[in-house]
Design a protein around this nucleic acid. Structure first.
Lengths: 139, 139
DNA sequence: TATACATATTCGTCAATACGGATATAATGA
DNA sequence: TCATTATATCCGTATTGACGAATATGTATA
């Protein structure tokens, strides 16, 4: 029974990483669970597009989702393959160094810490309030 | 003038890694320059297919080629982006742990060390003879 | 120059994916 | 139950990439 899990799909893993939007999403999730509405706000792109890319990451086994009322929270999960997990962590560390990715995270912080500036997000759950019990553990 | 180089294409980088054949090629090149004829021999796949994948890796800036008479030698080059270089090295380390990749390298060693078993490769240049001055330096 | 050998490219086809736009589903609250 | 909000999926289309088969290019050698 325990051996019924399909082997790790390396091609799918890298395909999932081969898209700018998905890398931006991963960067925003790099150390906390994030609500879809923030992705839409921060990336400034159509909600269906964000949702499709999140579904792609989910199917690739790189993120997982948790529902909280109307909101869906996504977070990164460590791949079952140890090597893949190491590579993913290295990628996240790399993204953190990129200017454009830092800018995204800055916008995320602004959206979370000053929600009054985003009228449509006034009631959206903030990452900080749920970070503690859903922190990503890749290492 | 020095700023005319185009920025590193992250999508292209990961697209290049999102193919089993290309990962097998990179694995074979992980610590030495390799002749195309060995790729064809070790992977047991059509020469045009190998050549196309090598061209893809070349266009992505992950490998470079050197001609030596009729033979073409390919080797991995460090990406200009430091983060990408670290990620690539982590990926190569990961590949080394995979059973199928180890089997490929074993077949490569056999092809190089016992060339008499491969009639069509009798005169092919062996990686060991040129390894010293073309070693990959990612770290 | 003609031939053989190693490698690269082209062509046609098929599958996968990205996208915008429209719509469907799920949860909440009046 | 109906409306609203948040998110997901579907549809048609355009692009990209992988493949086998055929062919072209480059190099050495007779």
């Amino acid at each position: 029974m325990a051996s019924l899990q399909k082997p790790f799909d390396v091609e799918r893993f890298f395909q999932a990483l081969a898209d700018k939007t998905r890398l931006r999403l991963l960067n925003l999730m790099c150390d906390q669970e994030i609500c879809v509405c923030y992705f839409v706000e921060v990336l400034g792109q159509p909600q269906p597009k964000i949702s499709r890319h999140l579904a792609y990451l989910r199917n690739a086994g790189i993120v997982t989702a948790r529902r909280e009322g109307k909101w869906m929270h996504y977070r990164i999960v460590a791949p079952p393959n140890a090597g893949a997990a190491r590579v993913l962590q290295e990628i996240l560390d790399w993204l953190k160094e990129e200017k454009a990715m830092q800018a995204d995270r800055t916008r995320l912080t602004r959206a979370c810490c000053a929600p009054q500036k985003f009228v449509t997000l006034q009631n959206a759950p903030q990452p900080a309030t749920i970070e503690a019990n859903t922190a990503v553990v890749l290492r």
